[in-house]
Amino acid sequence: MSKVKITINGMPLEVDASMTILEAAESAGIEIPTFCHDPELTRAGACRICVVEVAGARNLPAACTTPVSEGMVIETESERVIKARRVNLQLIWANHPQDCLTCEKTGSCKLQDYSYRYNVTGSPYKGETKVHELDDTNPFFFRDLNKCIYCGKCVRKCYEVNGAGAVEFMYRGFNTKVTTAFDVPLEESSCVMCGMCVDVCPVGALTPKQGLHNNRPWEVKKVLTTCPYCGCGCTYYLHVRNDKIVGITPNFKGPMKGHMCVKGRFGWDFVDSPDRLKTPLIKKNGEFVEATWEEALDLVAAKFKEVRAQYGADAIAGLSSARATNEENYLFQKLLRSLGTNNVDHCARL
């Protein structure tokens, strides 16, 4: 890989010639704000918040799409850059609901973060604002187009990663909006509800219904774990608050790159289903009766011993589980085999 010498904020750097300014800056630990950039998606260059000043350039190029070149001198936080970012933030502000106090996204909203960073407290531009009805037709997330900042990540994620292509930009000018073909509610579109759009939305335009009003980022504990559904093995962080799951963040650094499907992304609420078994049960006279662990376990052990003594170990069989962990499967077969039988199997064949 050929290298080029560049200067960012006065710091001389040698970076891969294939890098964008954004990547080069990141490699040097310099953070440039972005809304529309996602490393695995087509580079859109849409939001223009990442513009930087390049010596000799007529205008301010977008860091996320402009490749570095030999001798490039870049300023990422010059006065001209900050002014441009402020104006663009103010333009977004002028057309965005000011309900941060109660917005689901507060605390993990990029618009909020950058407004804070560049001290944008409001907008001098007064005029028309968009008015869209909240789309809550699908069971998993809200679509509030009033909060959309048109970064287009949902569009690209849906088309480029999922392949569903359920949403696209529609109309032009100020009336532009991100919506489904023929502008029908999401539920009637080709959306398969994987929720990957929700996970990349930088603002509160797409927010999950699960954990509503209970999912402030600073109040949740995030626990990395692996999805219990199919064999893809997607990993994600469970958001936990007061011993309840209130949400999910995919593991973007994991092998599945943060991709998810509807079951994994939203289908975890069975954990607190009222149907959950809370205590051991022993059947007495055809009816289940609640029992203590001691009673139940003693009974199981006694029965296994009895059957083995009377009919031999091979009269016992065990079905292990493709849903349980390795450790549990291991212990299960160890139990059966220690009893003296190889009668152990699971539903791999189904």
């Binding site: 939001c47 333009l91 977004i92 002028a94 048109y150 000018g173």
Partner: peptide
């Protein structure tokens, strides 16, 4: 403004405010 494709912030929002 009418013909802006709506992709980038300055053109979509900025020309609207200039027009206003």
């Amino acid at each position: 403004q009418k013909e802006s494709c709506g992709k980038c912030t300055p053109c979509r929002e900025g020309t609207k405010r200039m027009l206003e």
